[in-house]
């Protein structure tokens, strides 16, 4: 059954409405699926694509076509926010994604608050918005997803991360001040994307995990700032997916307090059990990206089929994909979902 357009299907799922089958998507950002296989033959190459709207448009179209994912996902890394906020970025190589070369500030107290209206005019924000807008206009039936780095991870990519984690305890005033600022910026950035035709925003916050922060700090810091961002996204009429990395055991009680329209998790989480235990209506995930990289298509089919049978609402990779993931494995995953 494929009665709905991919965009209708995803938006219906995110509104907790009935659908013909689960969508199979990959949001971009931390979960980038513009792999080496996908980019081959396009005459494009990383890291040149990252700031180039026209190149992003072509690359994301190729991702959708070659992998079978039912969405476009941009950007292709987690450094857009940190770049705008002043950190030094290593844009990587054809096989290695961009990373933070040096955080802008040594400690939270050093962070200077700048005008977020100005910030969204800097770095790659405009190129990403323009790429999304072009893709959305050409493909009205396929959702364009904008991927944001969550508040804690963004804060820990502009302030030295070891120091910032300590300051969550030692200098709460400045930790909150930085998170306020970063969240304001993310709200403005999400706003630009939504205005440009992105109907769905994904927030991945890999530093904000139960394993790193523990339940208290996850509740004190991760939940309120992520929720403020989600509320702002909702306020502008878009949907929000929240991805939480790692094991959820220590923070399970906080999961239902997240305002996102769907919660996406890593491969070790049993999504069916999570749904039953927490009562959250829409879960997304979680095909092991390790399997996607190293297993045969047959194994990928089985793993994916299990998720479909478990009634997982949105099927997607569980984590960041390796740039060396064979495109045949990704296609095996998306075919299984579509053939149901």
């Amino acid at each position: 059954m494929n009665d709905l357009s991919p965009k209708e299907r995803l938006l219906r799922v995110l509104s907790n409405q009935t659908v013909d089958r689960a969508p199979v998507i990959c949001p971009g950002g931390m979960m980038n699926s513009a792999t080496v296989d996908v980019i081959e033959g396009l005459g494009l190459s990383f890291p040149k694509v990252h700031p180039d709207a026209e190149a992003m448009t072509r690359l994301s179209s190729a991702v959708e076509e070659k992998t079978g994912f039912e969405n476009f996902g941009i950007p292709y890394c987690m450094t857009v926010e940190a770049e705008v906020l002043g950190s030094e970025i290593d844009f990587g190589t054809p096989v290695c994604e961009p990373k933070i070369a040096k955080e802008r500030y040594a400690s939270a107290a050093d962070v200077e608050v700048r005008d977020v209206k100005q910030l969204v005019r800097e770095g790659r924000v405009e190129a990403i918005a323009r790429a999304g807008q072009t893709i959305a206009e050409k493909n009205p039936d396929v959702p364009v997803i904008g991927s944001l780095t969550g508040p804690i991870s963004t804060a820990a990519s502009i302030v030295d991360p070891m120091t910032f984690l300590k300051e969550l305890r030692k200098d709460k005033t400045n930790a909150h001040r930085v998170l306020d600022y970063v969240t304001d910026f993310l709200v403005a950035y999400a706003g630009v994307l939504i205005e440009s035709g992105f109907p769905v925003i994904t927030i991945a916050d890999p530093t904000a995990t139960g394993e790193i922060l523990g339940p208290k700090m996850f509740g004190d810091y991760a939940v309120p700032y992520i929720n403020r961002l989600v509320d702002a996204i909702h306020g502008r009429g878009a949907k929000a997916i929240v991805h939480i990395c790692g094991r959820l055991d220590s923070v399970k009680k906080h999961i239902p307090t997240l305002h996102g329209d769907a919660v996406s998790t890593d491969a070790m989480v049993n999504l069916k059990a999570l749904k039953a235990e927490t009562g959250i209506p829409v879960v997304m995930g979680n095909v092991s990206t390790f399997a996607l990289q190293l297993q045969e298509p047959e194994t990928i089919r089985k793993v994916t089929e299990k998720l479909v049978e478990d009634g997982i609402d949105i099927i997607s990779p569980a984590c960041g994909l390796s740039t060396k993931t064979p495109v045949g494995n990704i296609a095996a995953m998306t075919e299984v979902v579509k053939d149901r």
């Binding site: 984690l165 969550l168 220590s250």
Partner: peptide
């Protein structure tokens, strides 16, 4: 025992 997490561990080691 999951009483302490990474921020605590870092401060203790400091």
């Amino acid at each position: 025992e999951e009483e302490y997490f990474i921020p605590e561990l870092l401060l203790c080691s400091d």
